[in-house]
Amino acid sequence: MNWEIILYWTATTFYGIAGAIAISGFVFKKERLINIALGLSAAGLVIHGISIIIRWKSVGHGPYINMYEVMSSDAWVAMAFYLLLQIKYRFLKRAAFIVIPIVFLSMGFGIMSTTEPIPLPPSLRSYWLILHIVFAKLCSASFLVAFGLAGLYLLKLSRPEAEFLSRLPTPERMDILIYRFNALGFAFLSIMIIAGSIWANNAWGRYWAFDPVETWSLITWLAYGMYLHLRLNRNWLGKRSAYLTIAIFVLSVLSFFFIPYFLKTVHSEYLVR
């Protein structure tokens, strides 16, 4: 009996049910349902965390070698980040119907790849790699929050009278928060790319090789840079900023998770199995 997989599925089930409850809470505008969804997610997070620890011990390295480990740990970090954040910003509770289903889908996406343990190859034993991975997760999590906020912001503007959305902060405040999380994600993304580049230089003797995933991360970085410019110098605030946030978030998901499947890259050597 493999506890790691059983717990993984249990956590996925928790997230799935929580996601469904959060969506119905949103549709039927029931605050209580959202609280239940958050509670279930927190329980799922603990179970999920145990599954990750079991795997960590049994394979002897952190969760970052193939798509299963990457998606699982990304989902964990995103969920933990979100649950902590909604304690500080209570109104973020209302983004649950976006965040929890995304985490659930990541879990499903992760389990589609092999769960076979893959030991750490020599090229991946590096502190720079760990930094690279930690900041990749932090930046995905920040962008995810900005994306969720942008969705809520547009909803609120389109239905200003909706009771459910009434306890969100003012649109101005949300607009600024979207910007803040994009800027934070941008800083994390810069660090992720830099750590990856230094790692590559230590392992293979070159700091940049125009590997497709590398290039697409740079494209994402430039796109967020463009967002910051449009916002600061061309006054792209409000709706425009929110739409752009959503578009660039989609681009970042494409770059980080789908490019390794379509293009030949060093990242697919261990990501796609």
Partner: peptide
């Protein structure tokens, strides 16, 4: 002119996309 910042960024993104 700082108006070109966004133009440059778009041109560079387009080149990268073409190259992949």
């Amino acid at each position: 002119s700082r108006r070109y910042a966004v133009t440059f960024i778009i041109l560079i993104i387009a080149s990268f996309v073409l190259a992949t």
